[in-house]
Each structure stands twice: as C-alpha cells, then as structure tokens.
Amino acid sequence: MPIPSDEGWIDRFVDRLPETRLFKLVASWILVPLWARLTPVKPLPGGPHPSFQHGDNVQCMMNLIMPLKDKSPVGRALAALAIAQNKEAIFAGLNNVGTVHFARFVIVGDNICMFSVYDGDFTNYIRDFIATIGSVFNAVVELVEGGEEVIPCEDNVEAFIQWVHERDLYQVPDTATDFLRDQEALNGDRAVSPVNDDLTLLPRKLVLQLRANPNVSLGSGYRAYPGFSVAQVRKHLGVGW
C-alpha cells in the first residue's frame, strides 16, 4: 500500500531553490564570500602528490597556466610565434630529455598553457628542460606576467623551478574524500579516529577550495597504459633509445 506523499508546494519550491537564478546569485555574491571569510581556505599546492611508488612517478601531469602580459590578440599572436619559432628546439629538447610522453602548448583566453605528461621527479624534469630548451622557456616566460623575475632561467634555476611549481595546477584527487585529506594535510590536521568531521560540509569545502584554486586539474587523469615509462613504452615498441 503506497504511503501518501507529504510533499507540499513549499517543499517542491525549496527543493528547486538551488537551481534558481536568484539563489545562484545569492550564493555567488554573498554566501561564498561570507563563508570564505568565516572559514578561510588556503590554496592547495600544484603538481602530483609526492610518492615513492613507481606507478605514481611515471606519467605525471604538469598543467601550467601562465597569464599573458599582453591580453590582446597581438599578445596571443606573440605567444604563438614564440612557440612556432622554437619548434625545432622543442622537439630536440623532448628527444634529449627522454622522459616526456606528451607536451602541448595551448592558448586559453589570456593564458598560455603548457600541459605535459612526464616521468620522474618534477624538479629534475624542469631542470632537464632548462638545460636543453632554456631559451624556449625564456622566450615564452618573457611574455608572461611575473616572468621577468625568473629569466634567463639558466641563471635562476631554483627560482624558475619554484615559479613553475606555483603555476602548476592543483590536482584534485580521484576520490572526493581524498580532497578532504589534502586540506587536512595543508592545515597540519593529521588526526586519526576518533575525529569529529561533518561530511555534509564537503560541498562547501569544495566550493571554497575552488575559490582559492580557481584553476585545477580534475582527477589524476586517464591512462591507457598506467605504470609504464616513456623508456619502457619505446623499448617495447622497438623505436629506439
């Protein structure tokens, strides 16, 4: 025997409230800033999580977002030109470094982005690139806000690596609750059971984190052949190195 629904018109109205334009405006302009003030959230650092495990240290992602100084089509064209003029250097550098699966330069809005998938340690990865294609980095970074402080990169190796790391996107974990663990680790909260969390606050925590880190990489990415390095793939394919 079906139990009659106790749902009234006001219940239906309230259930739909979050989808209304009014509520979205209130949330964006009042609630989110208010909660950001009441419960401040620090930006989470970019790049892969440190790990000693092999699988976590191959096919790592770098997602670099660099705002252009000149936010006009001319500025974007200059960025495109900087890449085009250095194509040979980029390919030679990638072959020499030997740990890069894929690398792409992309212009999105007023940003030039470098997205790459590489093996090994991030610091060594950038260090290798400075050694092999430092001039390309200089040509690109020169066009980017704050870039003048770290070029020529060959003379500012550590500062340049830090500069890149700060612009590498935070990689939101694959599981929702690991995102909470990242926040706890950043805040020095390493409590184990018993704790007194409120899992229902996860949406707010996510919203505030995305306010602190407006650009993020979602998940660790799909890999068709996880756990294998460039060197292993090339060896199995018989294409040299």
């Binding site: 609750t177 909470l180 409590a191 059971s193 704790v195 969390d197 899992l199």
Partner: peptide, 15 residues
C-alpha cells in the same frame, strides 16, 4: 553518516 564523521577510513565508502 555519524559513523563516517567519526572514522575517516570509512568516509570514502560511505560517501
């Protein structure tokens, strides 16, 4: 939910 709030190991599964 009460259990998950008290035990972080359970949060992923219960979520």
């Amino acid at each position: 939910l009460r259990y998950a709030n008290r035990h972080r190991f359970s949060q992923l599964g219960i979520f």
